[in-house]
Structures are given as C-alpha cells and as structure tokens.
Design a protein around this nucleic acid. Structure first.
Lengths: 249, 249
DNA sequence: CGTTTACTTGACTCATTTCAAGAGGTGTGG
DNA sequence: CCACACCTCTTGAAATGAGTCAAGTAAACG
C-alpha cells in the first residue's frame, strides 16, 4: 500500500459519528439534494460501515439480496460467471457509486463484486430504504436517477464494445476513468490504474497482450505516460478523438 | 361484453375494456401484482394510446423526458447516435416492455426509439407515476424490478458481445428472442424477425454479410429454417449449446 | 531471496471484415 | 397490372485486425 493519505483513527471515528454529511462522497451517492433532517433519517437506516479487503467479495452471484452498498472508499469490480466458469467483468466501480442494483429485480445478486484494493462501503438495507421512499420523494427521485444513469452507462459501454476498434476501446476506457476521477475531485490526467491489464482486457473484450501493446503505442506516440499502474494522460484531447474514431493523430 | 360483474361499482365496463386489465400484456408491464382498485388508479394516469407507424420515432435523442411508454403492440428498436452520425442499436423491444427509462437520470432521452412495424404504446406521464408511488408501494416495487432487470439485461448483452464468436452471438440472439416470445404466449420456435439483417448486425457488432452467412450455415446444418424474415428454430437445444460455446454440434 | 504473478514484445494464425457482384423482393408511378 | 428502381439479402474472394502461442523481463510477495 503506497497511499499518501494516512488514515488516522480519530478521523475514522469522527466520520462514523457524523454519517453521510461528513462523507466526502455524499454529493454523489444517495444523499444528494437532501436537507439536514432527511439526511439524518437516511443516516439512521445505514447500518454499518463494512471494510472489504483487497480481493475479498462484497457479495457473490446468487446471494440473496438485502442491502445496497454505497462505496465510501476504494474500488471494486463486478463480474458475471460465464457458463464455462470464466469471468466476464461488467464494470469497475469507485467511491460514490452504488453497488447491487442489478439484484433488485430477482432478489438475488446477478454478479459478484470484489474489492480491487482495501475498500469501505456503507450498507443500505433495501427494505428500510423502500420505507423511506414513502415519505422522502427527493430520495426516491435520486434513487431513480442513479438507476437510470446505470442503464445509460451500460448502453454506452455496449456502444463502445460493439463497433469500436481495440484502440478506440482503450482510449474510451481511459477517458471514462479520467472523467469519473474529475467528478470526485481528483486529477483528470494522473491516476493509478486499480485493475490489472488482464481485467481491463476482460472488460473491453481484448486480449491482455493487446491492452499492453496499445498502452505501449500510446506511450510511444506521447499520448500517455505509463509505468505499471501509474498513468498520466499527456494528451487528453488526442485520446478523446481516438475514442471517437477520428483518424487524425 | 356486457356480462354481469361482481366487482366494485367504481370499475366500469369501459375501464375494463380499455384499461390495463384488458391488455394482454398487463402481466408484463407495470400493472403486475396490482389489485383492481390500484389498477384503476394506474389506468387513470395513463394518458392516451399512441399509434406509431413503421419507421416513425417515438422519441428522439435529446428530447425532454416526460413520459414512459409501455409497448402495447408491435416492436421497436432503440439506438444511440455515434459521433460520426452512424447509429448503434442498443436493443429491440416488444409488447409488454417499457421504453424511456434511460432518460430519467438526465430528463432528456439518451437514445432514439423507432417502430419496426406499426405499433401502439401507452403513455405514462412520469410525474404522475411518481405521485402514485407515494401510496402504492407495490407499484413502486414493480417499477424498481423492471429497472433492475434492464440493468441485468444489459450486463448480459455486454457479456454476449464481449467474448463471444460471431456464431455464438447470433445463436444467443435467436435464443433470447425465442424466450421473450414464449413469455408473451407466442411460439418459441416460429416467429418473424422484425428487423433487417443489417439491424441485427449493428446490434451484435457484426457485418451484415456475417449475419447472412451465419443464418445460411445454421440453415444448412438443420438448426434453423429461414426464408427472409420468417424463422423457425428447428433445433433450439443446439442453438442454446452454440450460444454457450459448447463445441459439439 | 526465491517464487509467483503481472506485464511486454515478437511471430504467426485465423475469424471476421471488406470489397465486389448478383439475385430476389417490394413498392411506386404510369 | 406492369416496369422500373430501390432495398435487402446472399455468396465468393481477398485483406486485415486482433488473438494465440511463445519467450523473456520486471515487479510483488511471502
């Protein structure tokens, strides 16, 4: 672990006491737009923080669904199991995002969520959340917005995976990560890849070797600088235009 | 038509004939699980039937979002526009399915919905639907179930498009159509393709020629019989095993 | 400090696309 | 009702992007 920010125990205790209002991610997950009173009510149903160590599962495919999870800290991947036992990664999630919504329909988790690094989530018991919906329309609307965005996001991914060249896919992937980090207040151009090349390839439908080759070629062309997991996007506009399929550059 | 009923007086014959209760698709869309009184309340907010002729748009990308649409009759495709103006089909929808959920997040439609044949939809004003949610928890739960299923469906599609061969993709596509027709009371093995080969190819990320070739090869192997749009699945188990990647057959 | 895992790079192969040509339907207007 | 034009679909041959196989290097880990 090479995280520069040292998590002092005092800070954690404070955060535990102060709930959603104190969470730097509350702009992104459910509490957005709630007034103080409502936020307090939401805090009360949020059961406990749960730490998930790297490579640990938050939930497994087929688990009965009881709670949603708001990521407070860290990164996750979700994947489905193929018939032949191989995994297909369906997404990478970061702090401020909600996990488990795919299970609402069937009451069972349709995929498995695994932490890519030591992470922390807020458990949101779904039955109690539903009860809150009855007299907190703002919360309900926010919930619908998040689910709807998830649908749009996946449509976008489909678009990307369907008709794009390997180069376009990877460029689009990096641009997407960048914009999500910006929303969270991090740098748009410098971040760490939390996933392996293999996981990227699995997600994008590319061989590991292709991912590696493409990163190398981006580096050679001065579009990115990459050393292992450390990534710098040197020419974000170029990346964008590659992702869009513009032949230039 | 005018047979005596022992239902509550509030339930008119007119309502029975024209409302959700009379719709053969009401098991599939929102009314599922509602009692008669609730169904009547839902009927009251459902504005009007809307006919959509073949090739007409139900809504366009960027349109402001006001209503959801339950397909009552016919078929649609939804697609997003690529940067270079080409369309990427994100799904084919049939009677009993809900359209427009991707727009809830942004209040604007993220894609365009076009009828593949003369079709009919029920307009569901979203603001009024939200109002109903407040005292019809069953309706809300059903709505969440549908959205969640949409998320799962798209994850499944991603899985299919990512790591499958062209043959697997097409087999999976046909099996998927088949199972959806079964749910609607139609034959599992005989139906018409409502979309062109080009649209299938676009959706699956294949060239038109590949779709055509694959259909021909399925036909040659006695797995399907196909003439233009008329399709018969002669060996559904074989199709399934192709979709799953089983080498046999 | 050795072992394992992650990553890189090169050479070859192959599935799918692209290009090309033609056949079969469908619809429109005369 | 026919003729013409326009799609849609089919099939073959050639081109190619990405995968597979193989080997080696570098980092992470216990």
């Amino acid at each position: 672990m090479s995280s520069p920010t040292n998590t002092a125990p005092i800070l954690t205790v404070q955060a535990l006491q102060e709930g959603c209002a104190a969470c730097s991610m509350h702009q992104l997950c459910l509490p957005m737009g709630l007034d103080e009173a409502d936020m307090l009510r939401l805090d009360q149903i949020i059961g406990r923080r749960r730490r998930v160590k790297r490579d640990q599962s938050l939930y497994r495919m087929g688990d009965t669904f009881n709670t949603l999870y708001a990521i407070r800290l860290g990164h996750f991947k979700t994947y489905q199991m193929n018939s032949n036992g191989s995994q297909q990664i369906t997404g990478f999630q970061m702090a401020g995002e909600l996990l488990g919504m795919d299970a609402i329909g069937t009451s069972r988790h349709q995929c498995e969520a695994v932490a890519l690094e030591d992470s922390e989530v807020c458990e949101i018991p779904f039955v109690q959340l539903e009860a809150l919906f009855q007299d907190m329309p703002v919360l309900l609307r926010q919930f619908h917005r998040i689910m709807s965005k998830e649908i749009s996001r996946e449509q976008g991914v489909m678009l990307a995976l369907n008709n794009m060249s390997a180069q376009q896919k990877l460029a689009a992937f990096l641009v997407n990560l960048s914009s999500r980090y910006v929303t969270r207040g991090y740098s748009a151009t410098r971040f760490q890849l939390r996933m392996t090349r293999e996981e990227i390839g699995n997600y994008l439908g590319l061989a590991v070797e292709s991912v590696s080759r493409l990163l190398s070629s981006f580096k050679k062309n001065g579009i990115v600088d990459v050393n292992h997991r450390d990534l710098e996007l040197l020419d974000l506009p170029a990346l964008r235009s590659i992702a869009l399929g513009t032949p230039a550059c």
